[in-house]
Design a binder for these strands. Structure first.
Lengths: 162, 162
DNA sequence: TTGGCTGAGTCTGTCAAGCGGACTTATCCT
DNA sequence: AGGATAAGTCCGCTTGACAGACTCAGCCAA
């Protein structure tokens, strides 16, 4: 069973959706930045201090996230101060919520703290806790074990490296 | 509206579930490794070639994932070869499926390829496409915009740095 | 009008990590 | 004995992270 070649070996990883997504998110700091924005912290200094990011790295990550369309700069002005910019999630950024929630859910299960979770995603309307579920188009809600990743229409055969 | 201090500023990031989860997953290569395991590729060389990871980095990441309990080593023997080890997901590893699926879903929406997706998560039983949905305990299925991350029982007040 | 404060950066030197390529080890087959 | 192969280890180079100092623009108070 373990000896036969897995089907995936026939397919290229070149255009894989996960790779392409990780080119945007796959970095130690990017998720910390996103977390701050998701909890409502939007200003450079606040993000930097709370997330503990080196300034230079934060500058660079914010620029990258803006360029990728996950954030936009938004002017604001505190009374008696000059105009500055804060960073806000675009719709594309907001739509990462399921990823965040899935990560929180996993962390709560496998890295639990005594006394419960420090952060909880909640439905604004009703206040109940929000979680993420897998669901197929036929309406089933499969366990992880019942899901398989299959090639789609643009799967490319793998260049046969010897 | 944007001037008032966001509630999150009162809370420490120190024990945040996202941070703790990112300490395990938050690395350029870890998700690539997990992807290979999720699609069924389990052997060192296969993972290395498909994911394009430097050997040394792969060695180190596999060890870390084993130590964190997401993988285990499993002996196998090809006919006419000596015994070797392959890497398999534990239940903890498998339970990252929602994170993976959420990332694929986001990528398919915001980084689409002409002609459709290269990989598709499917329900093994019925073959239908699997996606991830947000759901609250009252049974609503909120949009991203209707979800908020709130402090939980172990939220810690932030040490007031001046 | 000068001087200080503040948020949001930029600059600089150090040091760890990633990287490709060569080398190693253990076992099997011929 | 010689060769093949999977799974590493070793080496030197380069890239990026990092801490800490410096800059810049606009506002305020004296």
């Amino acid at each position: 069973m373990s000896a036969q070649v897995p089907e995936a070996m026939n397919w290229s990883t070149e255009n894989c959706t996960i790779s392409r997504t990780m080119q945007i998110l796959g970095d130690k700091w990017t998720f910390h930045v996103l977390r701050e924005l998701f909890v409502g912290v939007r200003r450079f200094e606040d993000i930097r201090v709370r997330a503990g990011i080196p300034r230079q790295v934060l500058t660079e990550r914010l620029a990258a996230l803006i360029e990728r369309g996950l954030l936009r700069r938004h002017p604001y002005r505190l009374p008696g101060q000059r105009e500055r910019y804060e960073y806000r999630l675009t719709q594309a950024g907001l739509d990462l919520y399921p990823v965040l929630v899935a990560m929180i859910q996993w962390g709560d299960q496998y890295l639990p703290l005594d006394g419960g979770p420090p952060i909880v995603p909640r439905h604004r309307d009703c206040g109940e806790q929000v979680s993420v579920v897998l669901r197929c188009e036929a309406g089933h809600e499969p366990e992880a074990r019942e899901v398989a990743i299959r090639p789609g229409p643009t799967a490319k055969p793998r260049p046969l490296a010897s």
